[in-house]
Simulated scan of single mutants.
Amino acid sequence: MTIDIPFIWTAFKEIIKSIPITLILTLVPLAVGFLIGLAVAQVRIYKIRFLHQAANGYVSFFRGTPIIMHIMVIYYGIPLFIDQVSSKFDLNIQTNKIPIILFVLIALSLAAGAYLSEIIRSGIISVSTGQLEAAYSVGMTKFQAMFRIVLPQALAQSIPNFTNLVVGFLHTSSIAFLVSEKELTGAANIVASTNLKFLEAFIAAGIIYWGLTVMVEGISFLLEKRVTSYSRGGVS
């Protein structure tokens, strides 16, 4: 067997068209997950009554089970639940018209929230308690101290962890092709199936993934450099 080098370029041009859907499957869950993670982290840090145990269970479940399972359970489970509710109350909701990508985004967002809650929580814990005491001494409330003093420092210190998670979810988005969502891996599979040149197609897809990962790492490096310069009182 020989590698068809020209076909790698042909596949590359076709697969690259799926970058937008891949970025949606990566960035939207991370944005939604950040909000979930921030809320869950606060609940766990302050041990809010009743919610604390639920938050621990949520994080434990979604970090302790594969993301592919989350996608499959939500992909098959939510339509089944909606159909039963619709049938019971005569709502006439047709689940087959709900875009598949919505189920994938829900699953990925819930998983991202669990991972981000741990990143945010560890970042908050790493900030010196003395800074909180100083904030309280000048009349700040807990809310003000958290969002004006602690959280900015916690997020800055967590940039490497955020970067790892972004890269991880960029690669995890490839699971979506199992439910017929045409992201990079799905596009590579479709291109390859037309003439059985799977090696060439997945080499092209790998190059694209690598390029996107390098871009994420580059952005992370610039952010870290700017944050470090700012914390030292310099100018980036």
Rank of each mutant, 00 (worst) to 15 (best):
Ala31Cys: 12
Ile68Ser: 10
Phe34Pro: 02
Ile45Ser: 01
Ile19Ser: 11
Leu23Ile: 12
Thr65Gln: 02
Tyr58Asp: 05
Lys47Ala: 06
Ile45Glu: 04
Ala39His: 04
Ile24Glu: 10
Leu51Lys: 07
Ile24Leu: 12
Leu27Cys: 14
Thr65Cys: 10
Ile48Cys: 03
Ile48Ala: 09
Phe62Glu: 08
Leu27Gln: 04
Val40Trp: 10
Val43Ile: 14
Ile68Asp: 05
Ile67Cys: 11
Val59Pro: 03
His52Gln: 11
Ile67His: 03
Tyr46Phe: 12
Ile21Asn: 10
Phe34Asn: 10
Arg44Tyr: 03
Ile21Leu: 14
Val28Arg: 00
Ile24Asn: 04
Ala41Arg: 00
Leu27Glu: 10
Ala54Ser: 09
Lys47Tyr: 01
Asn56Leu: 15
Thr22Ile: 01
Gly33Phe: 03
Gly33Thr: 00
Met69Phe: 15
Ala41Phe: 12
Phe50Met: 13
Ser18Leu: 01
Val40Arg: 01
Arg63Ile: 04
Thr65Met: 07
Ile36Asp: 02
Glu14Asp: 12
Asn56Gly: 14
Pro66Val: 03
Ile68Cys: 05
Asn56Glu: 13
Tyr46Ser: 07
Arg49Thr: 08
Ile71Val: 15
Met69Val: 15
Phe61Pro: 05
Thr65Ile: 04
Gly64Pro: 09
His70Gly: 01
Ala55Arg: 03
Val59Lys: 00
Ile48Pro: 03
Leu51Arg: 04
Leu23Pro: 10
Leu23Cys: 10
Ser18Cys: 06
Ile68Ala: 10
Ile48His: 09
Arg44Asn: 07
Ile36Arg: 06
Leu27Gly: 10
Leu51Asp: 05
Leu38Glu: 00
Phe61Asn: 04
His52Gly: 00
Gln53Asn: 11
Lys13Phe: 13
Gly37Ile: 00
Ile67Val: 15
Gly64Ala: 03
Arg63Lys: 13
Leu35Pro: 08
Thr22Lys: 11
Arg63Leu: 09
Gln53Lys: 13
Val32Trp: 10
Ala54Cys: 04
Leu38Ser: 02
Phe12Tyr: 15
Ile45Asp: 05
Tyr58Gln: 07
Pro20Thr: 03
Phe62Leu: 14
Tyr58Gly: 07
Arg44Pro: 08
Tyr58Ala: 07
Ile71Asp: 15
Ile15Glu: 14
Val43Asp: 09
Phe12Asp: 09
Gly57Lys: 04
Pro66Thr: 08
Arg63Asn: 14
